[in-house]
Write a protein that binds this DNA or RNA. Structure first.
Lengths: 181, 181
DNA sequence: TGTATATGTATCAGACTGATATATTATACA
DNA sequence: TGTATAATATATCAGTCTGATACATATACA
């Protein structure tokens, strides 16, 4: 145990809310989950096959659709597996910010280059923040419709608060770099 | 190009400041850099051999030490390579927080379990924050001793601000989960 | 003297990414 | 109505990196 592959757990987590295709799972990753997790096709599709083989999910061909859609559904075993994983202590929370890495080694290239990276970071955060704010608004309105919304809201709130802090830091960092101190 | 392996760049970044052994590089990763980057022995040692083969670093046996120490030094080519990488736009800033992932799927196990994860997260942040605050103090005192300290300070400040925000979020999240709304 | 901890190098199975290939269907718009 | 473009959908793979482990020596200290 404790050898739960992350990709299996994320997929089961998503399937615990709704039936999905591999493509739809990737979309959820790239929109909703991207603020704190990510996954590639190269891990999603093999994992889906594996989950079916282990009886944690079932696969059926969507006859309604004209496409060759494979719809995946979580099984009771899959739900148990997910619950067990959710009960285990967190193994790792990891930041992997290339911006901070390049800034840390910034003396090699100087202030001008550091400012470029900070401003690019600021721009990206400013672009993404509205999506989080919008999600918060919608989730607050529909808070009673689904128990899961409460948990979604907590993670959205986390993103909003940290992004706002990032923007404050950007401002200070720019000032610090330009104005000596 | 733009095919710079991250591990090569981090190592060259560290070597641009001082000569180091593989073991010391790992220590820097686990102490200073861990707030925004990480690396394992499994990538460090092969990368060091590779850097030497490509002429970006040199290796010499420490004759002073009784141990079989290999000390690595950055070359001029290595410094150029590092500078080039520092000038390239940031490819990816990534958060990988298992805490948020488990919280997002929290409805499956309920509030009690969610609180456990939030409190564990809070505890870890509270333990780590003093190190960042201490680093900030030291860096501020020695700001004039080394140009690099200015850049170290910026990343420490980033960590402090975000960690403080995390703690605020923890407080609110606990309140939100316990007190209905 | 013993033993626990720190220093130091190295390797490997397995997880995951990023890119790419391939094909079909929906949609925009001319 | 035709057609180019975007979106949907699945799949694979070389290469990167982790986490674990193995092994050996040096140092602190009891």
């Amino acid at each position: 145990m404790a050898n739960e592959k992350k990709i299996d757990c994320v997929i089961l987590g998503l399937l615990s809310h709704e039936e999905l295709t591999g493509y739809e799972i990737k979309k959820r990753m790239d929109t909703t989950l991207k603020y704190f997790w990510s996954a590639s096709y190269g891990s999603i599709y093999p994992a889906l096959n594996d989950l079916v083989n282990r009886g944690l999910a079932t696969k059926r061909n969507d006859t309604n659709s004209k496409r060759n859609k494979q719809i995946y559904t979580i099984t009771e075993n899959g739900r148990d597996y997910l619950k067990k994983w959710l009960s285990l202590p967190i193994e790792k929370d990891e930041l992997r910010y290339e911006t901070l890495l390049k800034l840390f080694f910034g003396s090699e290239k100087g202030e001008e280059q550091a400012l470029i990276h900070i401003e690019a970071f600021e721009k990206k955060i400013k672009e993404e923040l509205p999506y989080l704010l919008h999600a918060k608004k919608i989730l607050n309105e529909k808070l009673n419709e689904d128990i899961a919304h409460k948990y979604y809201l907590l993670t959205a709130e986390f993103g909003i608060k940290t992004y706002q802090t990032y923007l404050e830091w950007c401002k200070e960092a720019r000032k610090f770099l330009v104005g000596g101190e």
